[in-house]
């Protein structure tokens, strides 16, 4: 993908830059007048999104994630950015008492959330469990030792991290209000010139499936901070009327029962919002109860 793969559009009083990254449509809203400035900001955002995607994608053969997986139990020295993400993942694991675990990605080998009714066997799930568990990893900055057969997956935090990182870069270039939106996870630097925030729509997964274009569940004004959504709009299994959400419990290997269809949370950063949304999903039936205690605006769709 080259640098030219973005588009710029002027809407009434702000510029919108669009590109594709991390398997999602991405956009940057910029409260600026000059096209040249909008172009520069969009290029920065695009480059940063691609950089983070390349660096932490588990599908590539030339990045740090691949090196860690290939090490077969040997220690790997990681760069400061990866180290910061690993620290963060470890803290999330502790905070969630093991529910948020970046080693749970191997469950994908038995769980394929394609909307079908093909559930894995209990035995197959059980076989995977020994290869999951952050506590089995030896992590001492800057060296990581991942037991053979285990995997790490930054998918649960990578996109939100990229959103916040991109905003940081844009903030260094402009004081104008910008909004970075990577596939629905977004953050804004602050209120716009006229004192208002950006209008953000919360998508309803039940309508998105049938009716993709812009059917928002509700709209609200975002003045500051981030918004992230965790949901299973397209990623679920359905068997005998039971919906199996793609939110898996890393301890049992099975989906969290009674998880909401989607949870959208606002927080100080997109990363915070993303973790809170995921933690809410992991609370299943008690998702709303958990969100209530966090004293931050949220939308929970069941």
């Amino acid at each position: 993908m080259g640098d030219a793969d973005y588009t710029l559009e002027f809407r009434a009083d702000h510029w919108v830059g669009r590109f594709q990254a991390m398997a999602s449509p991405c956009e940057v809203l910029m409260d600026v007048e000059q096209e040249a400035q909008a172009r520069e900001l969009t290029q920065i955002a695009h480059a940063e999104a691609l950089r983070i995607e390349h660096k932490f994608s588990r599908y590539r053969q030339d990045n740090i994630v691949h090196r860690i997986h290939r090490a077969q139990g040997e220690a790997v020295e990681v760069d400061p950015e990866t180290a910061a993400l690993l620290d963060f993942a470890g803290q999330c694991y502790t905070l969630s008492e093991g529910l948020f675990d970046i080693t749970s990605g191997v469950l994908r080998q038995v769980w394929r959330f394609d909307g079908s009714d093909r559930l894995p066997t209990t035995a197959a799930v059980k076989k995977i469990l020994p290869r999951i568990g952050w506590e089995k990893i030896r992590w001492q900055r800057p060296r990581l030792c991942l037991p053979a057969g285990m995997e790490i997956d930054f998918g649960g935090i990578g996109k939100e991290y990229a959103v916040d990182k991109t905003l940081q870069l844009l903030r260094a270039r402009t004081t104008a209000s910008v909004l970075v939106n990577f596939g629905g996870d977004l953050v804004t630097s602050g209120p716009r010139r006229h004192g208002q925030g950006w209008i953000v729509g919360v998508e309803n997964p039940t309508t998105v499936v049938d009716n993709p274009p812009l059917q928002s569940h509700c709209e609200f004004e975002l003045n500051q901070g981030g918004v992230a959504t965790s949901g299973d709009s397209k990623r679920f299994l359905l068997k005998r009327g039971v919906r199996y959400s793609h939110i898996l419990n890393p301890r049992t290997g099975w989906p969290i029962p009674d998880a909401p269809r989607a949870v959208t949370v606002t927080a100080a950063t997109c990363t915070d919002a993303g973790i809170l949304a995921t933690l809410a999903m992991l609370h299943g039936k008690q998702a709303e109860q958990f969100l209530q205690t966090q004293h931050t605006p949220y939308w929970c769709i069941r």
Binding site: Q91, L95, N223, Q224, G225, T269, D272, I275, T296
Partner: peptide
């Protein structure tokens, strides 16, 4: 959880302290 998370995120993003959250409380 949210407060602890805010500090973890600040460290991740290289902020000195967690940014103020306008919609901190409802």
């Amino acid at each position: 959880i949210r407060q602890a998370l805010a500090f973890s995120t600040a460290a991740l993003l290289g902020h000195a302290s967690p940014p103020a959250h306008a919609a901190d409380n409802r």
